[in-house]
């Protein structure tokens, strides 16, 4: 039995829900009152995660925190073909880790701007937006050349990886932080491709591809 301590508007929780759907895993979602209740900072939640962050995943008696750690655990445990976290290929594994780290850069920029705009966090909005545009420029160039070179995803190969899965949420939600995607046409096309994954799931602010 898998339990996800979850918040519907969290991009990091969304990453875990996306992978659980891709792996066709059933799970129970336990709603954490992140905003405005700040339940994740309370004593009860800190017994589960002393860092006071969501998401936290509990699989039987194994407790694991931090979105990317959870994703690596789920991919290693349940993805038989090792497609999402390609441990059998040094180059692809390294590149996957590289783009998962890129997702940390989008969290401190794109996601930070969204926290200010949507939830009123006290963060440097200008810095978040400037940094957000820098990450989007890098992403758009990589994806644009990928289209020319026959690479649809962030990492070489026919299948998407945790690189795509972890970068997608902050980027698709960027305009909630009033960071305009107008200048990044290749990014917009890649968002469309991700949305066409067979078991793609949405969250508030994310529309499906087509009338879905």
């Amino acid at each position: 039995m898998i339990t996800l301590h979850d918040y519907v508007l969290s991009a990091n929780c969304y990453k875990v829900r996306l992978l659980l759907a891709q792996l066709n895993l059933k799970f129970e979602s336990v709603d954490v009152d992140f905003h405005p209740g700040r339940e994740h900072k309370g004593a009860a939640f800190r017994r589960l995660n002393p860092m006071g962050h969501i998401p936290v995943l509990v699989d039987e008696d194994f407790v694991i925190r931090d979105a990317h750690a959870i994703l690596i655990y789920l991919a290693r445990r349940y993805d038989d073909g090792a497609t999402w976290y390609p441990i059998d290929d040094a180059h692809r594994l390294g590149s996957t880790a590289q783009w998962m780290n890129f997702a940390d850069a989008t969290a401190s920029t794109l996601s930070a701007a969204r926290l200010v705009v949507n939830l009123g966090y006290d963060l440097d909005l200008d810095a978040a937006r400037t940094g957000g545009h820098e990450t989007l420029r890098v992403l758009d160039e990589h994806l644009w050349f990928g289209e020319r070179e026959g690479r649809a995803w962030l990492v070489d190969g026919d299948r998407p990886t945790l690189g795509d899965l972890t970068v997608f949420p902050d980027v698709v939600l960027a305009e909630e932080g009033e960071i305009d995607l107008l200048d990044y046409p290749a990014v917009r096309r890649w968002l469309d491709r991700v949305k066409q994954w067979p078991r793609f799931v949405v969250m508030p602010g994310v529309f499906p591809f087509g009338t879905g």
Partner: peptide, 8 residues
């Protein structure tokens, strides 16, 4: 490209 909406 087909079935896409571009923005400018």
């Amino acid at each position: 490209i087909p079935r896409h909406t571009a923005r400018t």
